[in-house]
Simulated assay, not measured.
Amino acid sequence: MQVISGKVQKAKKVVLYGPEGIGKSSLATRFPRPIFIDTEGSTTELDVDRLPKPSSWEMLKQQVQWVKQQAGRYGTLVIDTIDWAELLCNEGVCAAHQKQSIEDFGYGKGYVYSEEEFGRLLNMLSDLIEAGINVVLNAHAQIVKFEQPDEMGAYDRYQLKLGKKTGSRTAALVKEWADMVLFINYKTFSVATDKEGKKNKAQGGIRTVYATHHPAWDAKNRHGLPDEFPLDYSHLAHIFNSSAAASQPAVQQPQYNSQQSQQQPPDQAQQSTQPEPMQPSNSGAQPESGSSIPASLLDLMMQHQVKDTEIQLVVSQKGYYPLDTPIANYDPGFIAGVLVGAWPQVHGMIQEARKNLPF
């Protein structure tokens, strides 16, 4: 058996959470060569590289796979925020099982499916770590009532805004997966405003990062960080400067652009050094009636440059709808649960059909 001694330098798994607007996204921009998956569309004022806002769970997973292929170009993937990604996960689970709500499964079964699907995403993010890409998950905070089993009484504490229902288990998964869980909040203190000390007002408000566990919040780290420090990346830089991901040479940033092959003549497109987010086998294919197709399916069609007629062909071959039925007339549950939910299989069938074209 091979024995590995000493520290192993790897990319880092980081969770940043706190109240809205406190600066989580701004802090994430300081990590090595970041690229954002902006699930809530809130980074428009930041000068960063970002992928299109995912309109489905399948689109989010494909974006993560694309980032993995960019190892050496990007040093950090930032998902902003992971609690909005959880909403996409629940929607995907419901669509796959033809349910209107995660509660419709009954007896907490929906949360079991959601946990399994969310765990697959974390496994994909772990693959990025192995490829040398740091992963930063931004999340909002929520205040919950907490009661320890061996104590009387309850108290409020900050937690990840994941799994707001008691049956959900995604928050625990994320905290266990991460190397660092950093809680960001305003540090305030009260000052008496009367001689008797009965009236007080809050002062301070310095943005502070908390890196260790406290009864009032979740936090952890494996790098000997102080219990608290100001919201400044310089306090974290040494961790990433010594990691394998941070030592990779910076190169020109690619663009995630499904229209690239159309904007260049065929001979120039082949010579381009910019990698495509997808590798379509029919570079001229485009949806003809995009405005009438749900965004979750349209985004996937645009990424892979798939025509309406190609979707209609594979759907008719499986016997779901006649060949001449417009996609806009498909049942929304069928689009979400079959076409979007099983997109890799659908796209595979389209690629096989393209091989059999007479030209």
Rank of each mutant, 00 (worst) to 15 (best):
S126P: 01
G132T: 05
P265N: 15
D299K: 03
P326S: 05
I4A: 07
L225Q: 05
K7A: 12
S242G: 11
A353V: 01
D83G: 12
P32N: 04
D38I: 00
G319I: 07
V251K: 13
H235E: 12
S247F: 04
K307I: 04
Q159D: 13
P254N: 06
F334E: 03
T29Y: 05
G119E: 07
I4F: 13
G132C: 01
I311Q: 08
K355E: 12
A342K: 15
L339A: 03
A71I: 02
V93D: 04
S289Q: 14
A28E: 03
A250M: 06
D308M: 11
D104Y: 10
I22G: 02
R169L: 03
P326Y: 04
F334I: 02
Y17S: 05
T81R: 04
P32D: 01
S243F: 02
T309W: 02
D299A: 11
R354H: 15
L60P: 08
G119W: 03
V174P: 05
A178P: 00
Q70M: 13
D218C: 00
P322D: 10
D104F: 10
L60S: 05
L236I: 00
N200I: 07
D104T: 06
W343G: 06
H140S: 14
Q262R: 15
T166F: 11
E45K: 14
P326R: 00
Y321W: 07
R30P: 04
A85T: 02
E103P: 01
F105V: 04
L160P: 08
S55K: 15
R169V: 00
S247K: 15
K165R: 14
A353H: 03
G284L: 13
E352K: 15
Q142F: 03
L27I: 06
E117R: 13
I4W: 08
V340T: 04
A353E: 12
D47L: 13
I206Q: 14
T208W: 10
A85P: 13
S101K: 12
C89P: 03
L16Y: 06
L77I: 00
G153V: 08
V78D: 04
R169M: 10
L128M: 09
Q2R: 13
P32M: 01
G333R: 11
D104V: 09
T170V: 15
T43W: 01
A342M: 07
C94T: 06
E116C: 05
L121M: 15
V209K: 01
I102Y: 06
V93F: 05
L137E: 01
K307N: 09
W84G: 00
I79N: 06
Y233H: 12
R50G: 06
L160R: 01
L122M: 09
V314R: 09
F240L: 14
S55N: 13
K53F: 02
E147G: 11
E310N: 03
V93G: 07
L160V: 08
K99N: 06
Q268L: 11
N282V: 10
E276Q: 14
S243G: 07
V67G: 00
